[in-house]
Nucleic acid binder design. Sequence first.
RNA 1: GGCCCCAUCGUCUAGUGGCCUAGGACACCACCCUCUCAAGGUGGCGGCACGGGUUCGAAUCCCGUUGGGGCUGCCA
Length: 469
Amino acid sequence: MAPRLRFAPSPTGYFHVGGARTALYNWAFARQQGGTLILRIEDTDVERNKEEWVEGIYDAMRWVGLTWDELYRQSERMALYEAAAAQLEATGHAYWCDCTRGDIDARAKERGGPPGYDGHCRDRGLRAGDGRALRFRTPDDGVTVVHDIIRGDVEFPNATLDDPIIVRSNGTPIFVLANVVDDADMRITHVVRSEEHLPTTPKYILLWHALRAGGGAEGRPGELPVFAHCPVVVNEQRKKLSKRRDPVALELYRDEGYLPEVMVNYLALIGWSPPDGRERFTLEEMVRDFRLEDVGRSPGFFDVKKLRAFNGDAIRAMTVDDFVAAVEPFAVQLPWADQFDVDRFRTVAPLVQERVEVLSEAAPMVDFLFLDEPVVDEAAWAKAMGDEQAGAVLDAVATSWESIEWRADVIGEVTLAAGEPLGLSRKKAQAPVRVAITGRSVGPPLWESLELLGREPALARLRSARARL
RNA sequence: GGCCCCAUCGUCUAGUGGCCUAGGACACCACCCUCUCAAGGUGGCGGCACGGGUUCGAAUCCCGUUGGGGCUGCCA
């Protein structure tokens, strides 16, 4: 039987890299096995869900090329959860509870025991009503074992499980209930999700069996899925990524100019590596080589530096035309977009291509070729023009440019030569010129830039810089 | 507090009892190249958390300790 997987994000914030990695593992396994990938939006908590976050999930997944075969929204399936809850109540697996958080904490403190729910309402025979939530009755003894492809068998003593709420007092289901009901209904065979869900998995399994034992006519669970709890992606403090605190929204990376294929390549590497140990691979290669049992067990840090390095390599590997085409959407968003000229950019593109790591850096690197005046970096100016020889260098260079053939190699030759009578090293001679022309101390090769800029504009910038000294 | 997971260079990892004097990648450092910055080349720094076992032999297996993380929500 072909496997059926599901990726089940909740739209309570932007879509982050950890979610993307989980989606990727689900996707790779499903595609490899010729299985089905279901995208299930877990939006049962009306309080904190937002429609824009749902769109964010779709956009993000499309951006990295993770396609899904079936789409569901839990908010449209409430009847199913209600029926399951009713069944659990009817079979004695669930009971109504009117305890508030305060009640529970007070009792825990009073008896001096561990915090948590004590089963206070188990046998009170409460009926549904205002302020009452439905709890699932967990066994008092025995052990529930989770069979996990990545972690092996994990055992949980049932006595350590509190009776979880499965239906809120407002009638909406809690995620573990909706999860079990949907996984059963959708005939999910593999639950591939992040490690943080491992501790609640025994409740999932118990719920599953309770639903099956109930003997309801329809929607009865079949075979329990197998689990694969992937290690979480953590921040620098080694904590689970937080949507609020950590700048890890996938769209952030897209907007900065990371390539989607690099993104998935890097993401896959946090927790998995191909059998031959190579680090660069395509989605196709991953689909071929991916194995759930090869996924690691320890949490991984999302290292932007490595991502950047990979992205830089990928950018350099592009054809010039592809690179230019990829840069254009970023250029048109610039404040000076109206001055940007693709064809002009194309002539310096190879020079820019090997100097950027993200696409958004490309056009700004050569802004001086498009603007009437270079934007001057004051620190660079102070350093380059601080030398008492600076003015003399600018004058000498300007003179040398007057009548030469305006070609990069010639420009370079005469410019460097111009500094020699002044006793300046080559490095020193080019610095004031570079700042006068580009406004900065670093950038693409100067001679080529000058050739493209043109003699008159170049001389004008030299004069302008001279005047400012 | 209770339960659970995890533990190889700074980071991501390879390693599944001898091939390990522990390999790679990113980062970092040095040098070369060089009009700046990159790119590229060469070299370097750097790790099996600790303690007990098991074994002829342990990064690899077992136990403990320590450390980190997660869950313990009418969030997912």
